[in-house]
């Protein structure tokens, strides 16, 4: 029992360290690399106005376009690594990701927020967000669904999120969470965060993933 607790503690520590590192890289890309590239971009625009040579002008414009593309890539990468909307709350972050998800995979996401959003500790909020992300990616990969419904329930003691896809579903006895690494990882991630996750599915009716996290008592 003690060993199990120790294992859980180590896993939580590894996940927390990884998330902190991801956040640091995202911040460095946004505040450091991104800002420097933007300075170079405005510098190129300034050089362009100062040259009359058409060949040189065209070359500088080509470099500007490349710089624009690179800046856009940095912005996307930053958001992918650590969504800035998470600082506004879990629901806004999932809402923002849902928009990106629809334009990436063509799957429509319907969002519903029940109750009043409460501020979660950063680690809990990240864990819930990452699990939602993982569930949605799994849906895009395997479910053949065109629509997903995500419902938030802000209770007195816990936050519960229900993610339901309207896809092909699967047989829980064949693909039980223990056999599918993606599903097992989702359950483990919630467990590490101090929450719970249940997965139910029926062929032809889709899959429902319920995740919940209690609010800390302090």
């Amino acid at each position: 029992m003690e060993l199990l607790k120790e294992d859980q503690h180590i896993s939580s520590y590894i996940i927390r360290s990884q998330e902190e590192e991801i956040k640091r890289i995202a911040l460095e890309l946004h505040e450091g690399v991104g800002q420097n590239l933007y300075s170079l971009y405005t510098g190129l625009q300034f050089i362009e106005t100062g040259t009359d040579n058409p060949q040189m002008k065209s070359y500088i414009q080509e470099m500007e376009r490349l710089m624009e593309r690179t800046l856009q890539e940095i912005r996307f990468l930053t958001v992918e690594l650590h969504p800035p909307a998470l600082s506004l709350g879990l629901f806004p972050a999932v809402k923002s990701y849902a928009k990106l998800y629809t334009s990436t995979f063509g799957v429509i996401v319907e969002l519903e927020n029940n109750g009043v959003e409460k501020l979660l500790p950063e680690q809990g909020s990240i864990a819930m967000f990452r699990v939602c992300q993982e569930v949605l990616v799994n849906t895009a990969k395997h479910a053949e669904a065109t629509k997903v419904k995500i419902s938030f329930f802000w209770g007195e003691a816990a936050i519960t999120i229900k993610i339901r896809d309207f896809g092909k579903g699967f047989n829980c006895t064949d693909t039980c969470p223990g056999n599918a690494s993606g599903l097992a990882a989702i359950i483990e991630r919630m467990y590490q965060a101090g929450g719970k996750c249940t997965i139910s599915s029926k062929i032809g009716e889709g899959t429902i993933v319920d995740i919940s996290l209690p609010f800390s008592k302090d």
Binding site: R69, Q72, E73, F76, S103, T104, F105, G106, V107, T146
Partner: peptide, 14 residues
């Protein structure tokens, strides 16, 4: 096409 998802998909250059 099997569905209308393609209409909603946007990909970035590259």
């Amino acid at each position: 096409n099997l569905n209308e998802k393609y209409r909603l998909i946007t990909v970035r250059f590259g």
